[in-house]
């Protein structure tokens, strides 16, 4: 399965990706961005947007 992964050392938790995600799959949690596998379609918009380059699309 293809999934969104956040690099916690790069992510500043600004949570703008949450607003960009068309599927409301992302949530900001204490430890970083969490991705709901049920909702995520791996479109990669969050990765394209992230100001810190902290998000990648990976194969699980």
């Amino acid at each position: 399965m293809i999934m969104i992964e956040t690099d916690k050392r790069k992510c500043l938790r600004c949570s703008a990706c949450v607003g960009v995600c068309p599927h409301t799959a992302l949530t900001l949690k204490e430890h970083g961005i969490e991705c709901d596998k049920e909702k995520c379609v791996s479109c990669g918009l969050c990765k394209d947007f992230c100001p810190m380059g902290a998000i990648s699309v990976v194969k699980e």
Binding site: S15, A16, V18, G19, V20, P22, T24
Partner: peptide
């Protein structure tokens, strides 16, 4: 703010 999720929960599409 920009991460607004609850508006979408209320049925207003705020996706950017």
């Amino acid at each position: 703010g920009i991460e607004s999720k609850i508006a979408r929960e209320a049925g207003i599409n705020t996706t950017l």
